[in-house]
Design a protein around this nucleic acid. Structure first.
Length: 429
RNA sequence: GGAGCGUUGGCAGAGUGGUAAUGCAGCGGAUUGCUAAUCCGUCAUCCUGAAUAGGGAUGCAUAGGUUCGAGUCCUAUACGCUCCGCCA
C-alpha cells in the first residue's frame, strides 16, 4: 500500500512507476483517486464540524435547566440524523477509495530493469559451469525410479495431480537440506520459527496475496480459512498492528512451514516430477527492518548472499537474475531470483526469490516501530527470500550430482546432515 | 463440542451512562549538576492549516444496537485464560 500523501505530492512519479509495472490509467486512475481523496476530506471536515456541535450540545445537557433540556435533546437528535447520513456517504466513498488503494502495487526501484515480462530479466551473475557428464545423464524422475526414491504414480491416486511422495534416502535428504539452511540462518542471527500453514483472510491482504493472486490460494469455506503458500504470509502478519521498539530491529526469522499452491495458472507446465507441486516444504527468510532504503537494500543483498551460500553449499551451478519491473509481483520494490542449473532441461530453473517490499506490506498490516531519534512512529520495511524450498531443489540437486551408477554425490557441507554419507543411492554400500 | 471469566495507550494498570486516572518507558523542553535527579509538555489515527503554531474529530478487541450522550448497557463475532469432553 502506498501513502496517499506521497501519491498527491508525486503524481507523475507514481504514474511512471505504475506504468513500469504494466498498469494503465484504466487499471488505476491516479487523478480520479486524488480527486476522490479530496472529496472525502471535504465531507470529513463538514461531518466533523457537525460532530463538534453535537458534542457541545450533549455536554451542555448535564448543566441545562429541566425546561431547556427537551429543546437541546431535540436539536441534538436531529443533528444526529444529519451526521448519520453524512457518515454513510463517507463510508461509501471511503470504500471506493480503499478498493483502489488495496489494488495499488508497490513502485519499483529505479535500479530495476524496465521491461514488460520475464524476457526483460537481467542475468547479473553466474557461479559455476553447467555440469558436464562423461555418460548420458538421467532426469530426476528416472533417477528416482532407479533408486526406489519415489511413489509418483501411486500417490496421485491418493492425493491427485501435482503431489509427490519421496522415500528412502531422498526423503531424508529433503529434511537434511532444511536443517542445513536452518543452521546457516541461525548462525546469521535468524530466529528459527515453525509456523502454521493455516491463515485467516486478513493476513492474505496484508501480504498482498489478495486481491492479486486469488486463484493461487486454497480456501476452506467450512472454516473460513486459507492454506498458506509461504511462511512469509504468517510472518508478515505476526507483528501486525504492533509498534515495535527500534531496538527490536532488525527482526530476523527463519520460518519453516508446509506450503500450498493451487498452480491454477500453470496448467500443462512442469506436470511431471518434483518441479511444480501443490504442497511443498519451505524454509523462508523474513526480515523486518527500519524505514530506511539503505538499510533495507543492505538486507536485500544480505538475504541474496545467504541464499547464494546455500546453493554453493549444495555445489550447484546457478545464476542470479535481477527481475524487471513487468515480471515483479505487485508488492515488490526490487527482486532477485536465483536459478540453479537443471541438466535435463538444459537451462537454469528458479529455486529462490528474494524481494525488498519496502513499507508496502507494513502499511497493509499496520506494522510500525518507534524511531529512536525523534520518537516518531514509522512503518517498517519488510523483506523475504527463500531459504530453501523442497522438493523443487532436489531436481537440480540429484541431476547435477548423479553418477554413472545412478547414485548421487552428497556435497561436503551436507554430509553431516546425512549421517556422514558421501553418496546415496541403490548401489552405494 | 460445552461452561465460566476476560480483552483499556509502547508496557503496566484504574475507571457509578456525562470530556480516558496514575505509574513506567520513549521523545521534546526547562532547571540543577557527578555517573543522574527534579519539573513541564508530548506520547495512536485523521481533518483543518504554510506550519514541525493553533483548532477540531476519532480511538478502550471487532462489527452493530440502545441513548441527547457508551470504556461503562444490549447483540453478534474474533481472540485469550480456566474447567469439562475428545485427541496426535
Amino acid at each position: 500500500m502506498l501513502d496517499i500523501k506521497f501519491i498527491i505530492e508525486n503524481k507523475d512519479l507514481v504514474k511512471e512507476g505504475l506504468a513500469k509495472k504494466g498498469y494503465t490509467a484504466e487499471n488505476i486512475d491516479i487523478d480520479a483517486l486524488v480527486n476522490l481523496h479530496l472529496d472525502i476530506n471535504k465531507l470529513k471536515t463538514s461531518t466533523q464540524n457537525k460532530l463538534e456541535e453535537k458534542n457541545r450540545l450533549s455536554n451542555s445537557i448535564k448543566s441545562a435547566s429541566p425546561e431547556e433540556r427537551p429543546q437541546i435533546i431535540a436539536q441534538s437528535k436531529s443533528l444526529g440524523e444529519e451526521i448519520k447520513t453524512s457518515q454513510e456517504e463517507l463510508a461509501k466513498l471511503q470504500e471506493q477509495f480503499d478498493n483502489v488503494m488495496w489494488r495499488m502495487p508497490n513502485l519499483p526501484s529505479e535500479q530495476s530493469p524496465v521491461a514488460e515480462d520475464e524476457e526483460g530479466n537481467v542475468v547479473i551473475k553466474k557461479v559455476g559451469e553447467p555440469t558436464k557428464f562423461n555418460f548420458t545423464p538421467l532426469d530426476h524422475i528416472e533417477l528416482m525410479e532407479k533408486n526406489n526414491w519415489s511413489e509418483l504414480e501411486r500417490i496421485t491416486k491418493v492425493s491427485g495431480a501435482r503431489t509427490y511422495a519421496i522415500k528412502n534416502e531422498l526423503s531424508r535428504l529433503e529434511l537434511a537440506m532444511h536443517m542445513l539452511v536452518l543452521d546457516k540462518l541461525a548462525s546469521h542471527g535468524f530466529t528459527t520459527i515453525t509456523v502454521p500453514s493455516l491463515s485467516k483472510e486478513k493476513p492474505l491482504y496484508g501480504m498482498g496475496y489478495l486481491p492479486f493472486a486469488q486463484d493461487e490460494v486454497y480456501y476452506m469455506p467450512s472454516d473460513d480459512t486459507y492454506l498458506s503458500g509461504t511462511a512469509e504470509l504468517v510472518l508478515n502478519s505476526l507483528h501486525a498492528d504492533e509498534i515495535l521498539s527500534e531496538n527490536d530491529l532488525p527482526v530476523l526469522y527463519a520460518g519453516f512451514s508446509p506450503c500450498f499452491r493451487r498452480e491454477a495458472g500453470a496448467a500443462g507446465k512442469d506436470t511431471r516430477g518434483l518441479v511444480r507441486v501443490h504442497q511443498f516444504l519451505k524454509t523462508e527468510q523474513f526480515v523486518i527492518c527500519k524505514n530506511d532504503i539503505n538499510e533495507s537494500e543492505y538486507w536485500h543483498k544480505k538475504l541474496l548472499q545467504i541464499s547464494e551460500e546455500v546453493l554453493q553449499d549444495l555445489e550447484l551451478p546457478y545464476q542470479v537474475l535481477e527481475i524487471c519491473t513487468g515480471d515483479m509481483g505487485a508488492p515488490k520494490y526490487r527482486q532477485y531470483d536465483l536459478e540453479a542449473w537443471t541438466p535435463s532441461q538444459n537451462c537454469y530453473r528458479e529455486t529462490h526469490s528474494c524481494s525488498n517490499i519496502t513499507e508496502w506490506q507494513a502499511r497493509r498490516t499496520n506494522l510500525r516501530y518507534r524511531d529512536n531519534k525523534d520518537g516518531k512512529v514509522r512503518f517498517a520495511h519488510t523483506l523475504n527470500n527463500t531459504g530453501i524450498a523442497t522438493p523443487r531443489i532436489l531436481v537440480p540437486f540429484i541431476e547435477n550430482h548423479q553418477q554413472e551408477d545412478f547414485s548421487v554425490r552428497i556435497p561436503e557441507k551436507l554430509q553431516p546432515y546425512m549421517g556422514g554419507k558421501k553418496f546415496i543411492g541403490k548401489n552405494v554400500k
